[in-house]
Design a protein around this nucleic acid. Structure first.
Lengths: 223, 223
DNA sequence: TTTCATAATTATGGATACAGTATTATTCGT
DNA sequence: ACGAATAATACTGTATCCATAATTATGAAA
């Protein structure tokens, strides 16, 4: 095992990942312009790998390249959300269905542990950690589905969703409600009720959309 | 209206499109190495825009970039096909469902016309043209669904499928069978039977997978 | 004072040059 | 003669440089 074979990652990939993190952290806000020169100077690299990284992010939909105009963080419209959430509900629902039929004991144990974390972070009202555990819970089910493409499509769409500030969990009572929904999903999977798991996951995602819509209304009222 | 504003396309995009066409035409076979220098020389451009184009194609899954090793046309495994087809069946099924509920008279007329072409090319056994009309028929339904993301996800997956040589239509009787399935989809949409259209489309895609599997067996027997 | 036009500056897109690594071929040793 | 090691070659990855287009600012005219 040559250790040099491990981190064969090219510079443009590292740069792409750094930018992803900054975009997801909302340090770079949607609509913001990404200045190639300034960023290359900031990172201490040349513009070449940076430009390659931006092309990759553009394919992922995280940034929008306007020819001869520059690079901008993509702005996600309400229409996009209305398109993506039902799609996610269908896709993640399918994951839950497949995961139920293929579940191994160790998978269920892992899901149980993640749900335990969810309960814990809901109890202590640690929203950021709840969000993390939530993602891990969903990812675990996607892994269990055994369909790599299905998982990949979901993850690609989730990247776009992460462009928006997801305040839905901050809404009064949503954290608890989300926990209940997760419990229902977990129970159906453990009971071997594939159709039930699919429906529970489907409804869970759509409920997330509803909460997001409400939080947007709340935000606009606040301004 | 300044005509110069129309074709704002960057060089890397043109190059990416040219490469896509060559890959889909199986002029560049899966597993084949793409030599940057040779290709840049061939196209009469520098390596910079070519490399950017390859990054884009890599995000689409058409090529695989192996760090320090080079760029290769992606090889699609049977496992990939087993992952993608059920996914496509679900996604295109959903399209058919949504399209049925949203169908406008002019949409139905266009679908009718496309189906007419299918019948014509099936009659004259023009496989390539049937293939084209088939794509247009499916695309029209995706447009009718009104969900841009749904359409985009389907198109992205279809790109991967187009990497493989799709001999399924060449199979004895498959062209006729495909025509029957399309007729069923069209009839359900025109009847406003959304669930029926969804089921018909779902089964149609899975039948395509079956035919492909049979054609692969036939090919292996032939070698 | 406001608007339009022109010029200048700045940033993007593309080309060329250079460095580092991987692969392959050749040579030496067993 | 065969295998291993080293050297050479070729290609990937990164940096710098140049040209073109877009945006902004300034000046003039209405």
């Amino acid at each position: 095992m040559d250790p040099s074979q491990i981190a064969q990652t090219a510079l443009y990939q590292e740069v792409a990942e750094r930018l992803r993190q900054r975009i997801f952290a909302h340090e770079l806000l949607p609509g913001a312009r990404i200045d190639e020169q300034a960023l290359a100077l900031d990172y201490g690299i040349s513009r070449t790998p940076l430009r390659e990284a931006l092309k990759v992010l553009a394919s992922e939909g995280l940034v929008t390249l306007r020819p001869r105009r520059g690079c901008f963080v993509t702005e996600v419209s309400e229409q996009d959300l209305d398109d993506i959430f039902p799609l996610m509900a269908m896709l993640e629902g399918r994951c839950a269905l497949e995961a139920t039929t293929r579940a191994q004991p160790e998978d269920l144990a892992r899901l149980d542990a993640l749900h335990g974390q969810l309960e814990q972070f809901a109890e202590s009202n640690e929203i950021a950690r709840f969000f993390e555990a939530n993602q891990a819970f969903h990812y675990q089910i996607q892994e269990m589905s055994g369909n790599r493409r299905l998982r990949q499509v979901i993850q690609d769409l989730r990247k776009v969703l992460k462009l928006t500030r997801l305040f839905s969990l901050s809404i009064d009572g949503r954290l608890q409600q989300s926990l209940v929904e997760h419990a229902a999903i977990l129970a159906a999977i453990k009971a071997g009720d594939a159709a039930g798991a699919q429906a529970a996951m489907h409804d869970h995602i759509l409920a997330g959309r509803q909460a997001l819509a409400r939080s947007h209304v709340a935000q606009e009222l606040a301004t």
